[in-house]
Protein backbone atom coordinates (compact mmCIF):
# COMPACT_ATOMS: atom_id res chain seq x y z
CA UNK A 1 0.00 0.00 0.00
CA UNK A 2 2.61 2.53 1.01
CA UNK A 3 4.62 1.68 -2.12
CA UNK A 4 1.83 3.29 -4.12
CA UNK A 5 2.25 6.94 -4.85
CA UNK A 6 0.62 9.22 -2.29
CA UNK A 7 -0.97 11.32 -4.99
CA UNK A 8 -1.87 10.18 -8.46
CA UNK A 9 -3.41 12.58 -10.93
CA UNK A 10 -4.58 10.84 -14.07
CA UNK A 11 -5.77 12.66 -17.18
CA UNK A 12 -7.43 15.44 -15.18
CA UNK A 13 -9.88 17.64 -17.08
CA UNK A 14 -11.53 20.67 -15.62
CA UNK A 15 -13.91 23.13 -17.24
CA UNK A 16 -15.36 26.43 -16.10
CA UNK A 17 -18.43 26.64 -18.29
CA UNK A 18 -17.23 26.20 -21.85
CA UNK A 19 -13.63 27.06 -21.06
CA UNK A 20 -11.42 24.03 -20.51
CA UNK A 21 -8.88 25.10 -17.92
CA UNK A 22 -7.11 21.79 -17.34
CA UNK A 23 -6.68 19.66 -20.45
CA UNK A 24 -5.48 16.27 -19.32
CA UNK A 25 -2.99 16.55 -16.47
CA UNK A 26 -1.20 13.43 -15.25
CA UNK A 27 1.53 13.06 -12.64
CA UNK A 28 2.38 11.19 -9.48
CA UNK A 29 3.85 12.15 -6.15
CA UNK A 30 5.54 9.77 -3.73
CA UNK A 31 5.65 10.38 -0.02
CA UNK A 32 8.06 13.18 0.90
CA UNK A 33 8.07 14.50 -2.64
CA UNK A 34 8.12 18.24 -3.14
CA UNK A 35 6.43 19.04 -6.41
CA UNK A 36 6.86 22.62 -7.60
CA UNK A 37 4.35 23.95 -10.08
CA UNK A 38 5.21 26.92 -12.28
CA UNK A 39 3.48 28.53 -15.21
CA UNK A 40 2.16 31.81 -16.51
CA UNK A 41 -0.87 33.49 -15.01
CA UNK A 42 -4.07 31.71 -15.97
CA UNK A 43 -2.33 28.45 -16.83
CA UNK A 44 -4.42 26.56 -14.26
CA UNK A 45 -2.05 26.16 -11.31
CA UNK A 46 -4.52 27.24 -8.64
CA UNK A 47 -7.26 25.24 -10.29
CA UNK A 48 -5.12 22.10 -10.18
CA UNK A 49 -4.44 22.56 -6.46
CA UNK A 50 -8.09 23.18 -5.76
CA UNK A 51 -9.08 20.00 -7.58
CA UNK A 52 -6.86 18.01 -5.25
CA UNK A 53 -8.74 19.02 -2.08
CA UNK A 54 -11.98 19.46 -4.01
CA UNK A 55 -12.44 23.13 -3.30
CA UNK A 56 -13.53 22.86 -6.92
CA UNK A 57 -15.02 19.87 -8.71
CA UNK A 58 -13.52 18.43 -11.91
CA UNK A 59 -15.20 16.81 -14.90
CA UNK A 60 -12.79 14.20 -16.18
CA UNK A 61 -9.95 11.98 -15.04
CA UNK A 62 -9.09 10.92 -11.55
CA UNK A 63 -7.13 12.06 -8.52
CA UNK A 64 -6.27 9.52 -5.86
CA UNK A 65 -4.87 10.16 -2.41
CA UNK A 66 -3.23 7.14 -0.82
CA UNK A 67 -4.94 4.92 -3.36
CA UNK A 68 -8.47 6.26 -2.84
CA UNK A 69 -10.09 8.46 -5.48
CA UNK A 70 -10.74 11.82 -3.85
CA UNK A 71 -14.20 11.89 -5.37
CA UNK A 72 -15.07 8.80 -3.34
CA UNK A 73 -13.84 10.28 -0.07
CA UNK A 74 -15.95 12.29 2.29
CA UNK A 75 -15.01 15.83 1.33
CA UNK A 76 -14.46 17.02 4.91
CA UNK A 77 -12.33 13.96 5.56
CA UNK A 78 -10.29 14.65 2.43
CA UNK A 79 -9.60 18.21 3.53
CA UNK A 80 -8.64 17.01 6.99
CA UNK A 81 -5.83 15.07 5.30
CA UNK A 82 -4.76 17.79 2.90
CA UNK A 83 -3.51 21.10 4.31
CA UNK A 84 -3.77 24.26 2.25
CA UNK A 85 -1.86 27.53 2.41
CA UNK A 86 -3.29 30.51 0.57
CA UNK A 87 -1.69 33.38 -1.28
CA UNK A 88 -3.55 35.97 0.77
CA UNK A 89 -3.23 33.97 4.00
CA UNK A 90 -6.96 33.84 4.83
CA UNK A 91 -6.29 33.71 8.54
CA UNK A 92 -9.51 33.74 10.55
CA UNK A 93 -9.68 37.47 11.19
CA UNK A 94 -11.51 37.24 14.51
CA UNK A 95 -9.14 34.77 16.12
CA UNK A 96 -5.66 35.11 17.58
CA UNK A 97 -2.76 33.26 16.00
CA UNK A 98 -3.14 30.48 18.54
CA UNK A 99 -6.91 30.28 18.12
CA UNK A 100 -6.51 30.16 14.34
CA UNK A 101 -4.47 27.01 14.72
CA UNK A 102 -6.76 25.53 17.38
CA UNK A 103 -10.00 25.80 15.43
CA UNK A 104 -9.44 22.79 13.17
CA UNK A 105 -8.20 20.43 15.88
CA UNK A 106 -11.02 21.56 18.20
CA UNK A 107 -13.94 21.49 15.80
CA UNK A 108 -12.83 18.97 13.19
CA UNK A 109 -10.64 16.52 15.09
CA UNK A 110 -12.62 16.92 18.31
CA UNK A 111 -9.58 17.56 20.49
CA UNK A 112 -9.98 19.16 23.89
CA UNK A 113 -9.21 22.82 24.45
CA UNK A 114 -5.99 21.92 26.28
CA UNK A 115 -4.75 19.45 23.65
CA UNK A 116 -5.49 21.90 20.88
CA UNK A 117 -3.80 24.78 22.69
CA UNK A 118 -0.72 22.72 23.41
CA UNK A 119 -0.49 21.63 19.79
CA UNK A 120 -1.01 25.21 18.60
CA UNK A 121 1.85 26.46 20.74
CA UNK A 122 4.10 23.68 19.41
CA UNK A 123 3.25 24.62 15.84
CA UNK A 124 3.80 28.32 16.52
CA UNK A 125 7.13 27.44 18.02
CA UNK A 126 8.03 25.45 14.91
CA UNK A 127 7.40 28.50 12.70
CA UNK A 128 9.14 30.81 15.15
CA UNK A 129 6.10 32.70 16.36
CA UNK A 130 5.63 31.53 19.93
CA UNK A 131 5.70 35.16 21.08
CA UNK A 132 2.84 36.11 18.76
CA UNK A 133 0.41 33.47 20.05
CA UNK A 134 -2.11 36.02 21.29
CA UNK A 135 -1.82 38.49 18.42
CA UNK A 136 -4.69 38.98 16.01
CA UNK A 137 -4.01 38.68 12.26
CA UNK A 138 -4.22 42.45 11.83
CA UNK A 139 -1.35 42.79 14.30
CA UNK A 140 0.97 40.49 12.35
CA UNK A 141 3.22 41.23 9.39
CA UNK A 142 2.55 39.44 6.11
CA UNK A 143 5.37 36.99 6.70
CA UNK A 144 4.11 36.24 10.19
CA UNK A 145 0.57 35.77 8.89
CA UNK A 146 1.73 33.27 6.33
CA UNK A 147 3.74 31.35 8.91
CA UNK A 148 0.60 31.14 11.06
CA UNK A 149 -1.24 29.96 7.95
CA UNK A 150 1.29 27.15 7.56
CA UNK A 151 1.10 26.29 11.25
CA UNK A 152 -2.68 26.16 11.02
CA UNK A 153 -2.51 23.60 8.23
CA UNK A 154 0.19 21.55 9.98
CA UNK A 155 -1.82 21.24 13.18
CA UNK A 156 -4.20 18.93 11.32
CA UNK A 157 -1.39 16.42 10.68
CA UNK A 158 -1.98 16.44 6.93
CA UNK A 159 -0.58 13.79 4.60
CA UNK A 160 -0.12 16.40 1.93
CA UNK A 161 0.32 20.15 1.94
CA UNK A 162 -0.84 22.42 -0.88
CA UNK A 163 0.75 25.85 -1.23
CA UNK A 164 -0.77 28.36 -3.64
CA UNK A 165 1.79 31.11 -4.20
CA UNK A 166 2.45 31.45 -0.48
CA UNK A 167 4.92 34.31 -0.91
CA UNK A 168 3.36 36.27 -3.76
CA UNK A 169 1.56 38.74 -1.51
CA UNK A 170 4.63 39.42 0.59
CA UNK A 171 7.08 42.29 0.55
CA UNK A 172 10.42 41.00 -0.72
CA UNK A 173 12.11 41.28 2.66
CA UNK A 174 9.47 39.00 4.22
CA UNK A 175 9.67 36.21 1.66
CA UNK A 176 12.77 34.65 3.19
CA UNK A 177 11.20 33.81 6.54
CA UNK A 178 8.35 31.95 4.86
CA UNK A 179 10.56 30.11 2.38
CA UNK A 180 12.76 29.03 5.28
CA UNK A 181 9.79 27.46 7.06
CA UNK A 182 8.82 25.67 3.86
CA UNK A 183 12.34 24.36 3.35
CA UNK A 184 12.41 23.04 6.92
CA UNK A 185 9.11 21.36 6.26
CA UNK A 186 10.40 19.75 3.06
CA UNK A 187 13.49 18.56 4.87
CA UNK A 188 11.31 17.09 7.59
CA UNK A 189 9.70 14.84 5.00
CA UNK A 190 6.38 16.58 4.34
CA UNK A 191 4.81 15.83 0.96
CA UNK A 192 4.21 19.18 -0.69
CA UNK A 193 2.60 20.44 -3.88
CA UNK A 194 3.75 24.02 -4.24
CA UNK A 195 2.82 26.73 -6.70
CA UNK A 196 5.59 29.28 -6.41
CA UNK A 197 7.83 31.59 -8.36
CA UNK A 198 10.60 31.33 -5.79
CA UNK A 199 13.28 29.63 -7.85
CA UNK A 200 15.57 29.59 -4.83
CA UNK A 201 13.10 27.31 -3.10
CA UNK A 202 12.63 25.22 -6.23
CA UNK A 203 16.36 24.60 -6.61
CA UNK A 204 16.86 23.87 -2.94
CA UNK A 205 13.82 21.78 -2.11
CA UNK A 206 11.99 20.52 -5.18
CA UNK A 207 12.00 16.86 -6.09
CA UNK A 208 10.38 17.78 -9.38
CA UNK A 209 9.34 20.90 -11.23
CA UNK A 210 6.30 20.93 -13.44
CA UNK A 211 5.83 23.65 -16.05
CA UNK A 212 2.18 24.24 -16.85
CA UNK A 213 0.88 26.33 -19.72
CA UNK A 214 -2.69 26.74 -20.93
CA UNK A 215 -3.90 23.77 -18.95
CA UNK A 216 -1.23 21.35 -20.17
CA UNK A 217 2.04 20.12 -18.71
CA UNK A 218 4.78 21.40 -20.98
CA UNK A 219 7.63 19.83 -19.13
CA UNK A 220 8.13 17.89 -15.94
CA UNK A 221 11.34 16.76 -14.29
CA UNK A 222 13.95 17.24 -11.56
CA UNK A 223 15.16 20.81 -11.08
CA UNK A 224 18.68 20.13 -12.34
CA UNK A 225 17.37 18.97 -15.69
CA UNK A 226 14.76 21.71 -16.11
CA UNK A 227 17.17 24.45 -15.17
CA UNK A 228 20.25 23.16 -16.98
CA UNK A 229 18.91 21.19 -19.86
CA UNK A 230 15.23 21.73 -20.64
CA UNK A 231 13.66 20.02 -23.63
CA UNK A 232 11.59 23.03 -24.62
CA UNK A 233 12.73 26.49 -25.43
CA UNK A 234 9.64 27.86 -23.67
CA UNK A 235 10.60 26.18 -20.40
CA UNK A 236 14.07 27.65 -20.58
CA UNK A 237 12.74 31.13 -21.21
CA UNK A 238 10.13 30.95 -18.48
CA UNK A 239 12.49 29.60 -15.82
CA UNK A 240 15.15 32.08 -16.78
CA UNK A 241 12.73 34.94 -16.40
CA UNK A 242 11.49 33.65 -13.03
CA UNK A 243 15.04 33.28 -11.83
CA UNK A 244 15.77 36.83 -12.84
CA UNK A 245 12.66 38.11 -11.02
CA UNK A 246 12.49 35.72 -8.09
CA UNK A 247 15.89 34.13 -7.93
CA UNK A 248 17.79 34.07 -4.70
CA UNK A 249 15.83 35.96 -2.10
CA UNK A 250 18.26 35.67 0.73
Amino acid sequence: MSDDPLVRVDDLHKRYGDEEVLKGISFEMDRQDVQVLVGPSGSGKSTLLRCVNRLTEFQGGEITLDGTPVTEMDVDDLRRQVGMVFQDFNLFAHLTAKENIMLGPRRVLGKTEEEAAERALDELDRVGLAAQADSYPAELSGGQKQRVGIARALAMDPKLMLFDEPTSALDPELIGEVVEVMEDLAEGGMTMLVVTHEMGFARAAATDIMFLDQGRIVEHGPPERLFENPEHERTAQFLERLTRLHGETR
Partner: peptide, 18 residues
Protein backbone atom coordinates in the same frame (compact mmCIF):
# COMPACT_ATOMS: atom_id res chain seq x y z
CA UNK B 1 -16.99 38.91 5.08
CA UNK B 2 -14.20 37.96 2.69
CA UNK B 3 -15.15 34.73 0.84
CA UNK B 4 -11.60 33.52 1.54
CA UNK B 5 -12.63 33.13 5.18
CA UNK B 6 -15.27 30.54 4.36
CA UNK B 7 -12.87 28.81 2.00
CA UNK B 8 -10.17 28.66 4.66
CA UNK B 9 -12.68 27.11 7.04
CA UNK B 10 -13.56 24.50 4.43
CA UNK B 11 -9.88 23.87 3.78
CA UNK B 12 -9.18 22.91 7.40
CA UNK B 13 -11.99 20.39 7.13
CA UNK B 14 -14.92 22.23 8.67
CA UNK B 15 -18.26 21.53 7.02
CA UNK B 16 -19.96 24.44 5.32
CA UNK B 17 -22.23 24.84 8.32
CA UNK B 18 -19.24 24.66 10.64
Amino acid sequence: VDPGQLEAGRAVGLSKLG
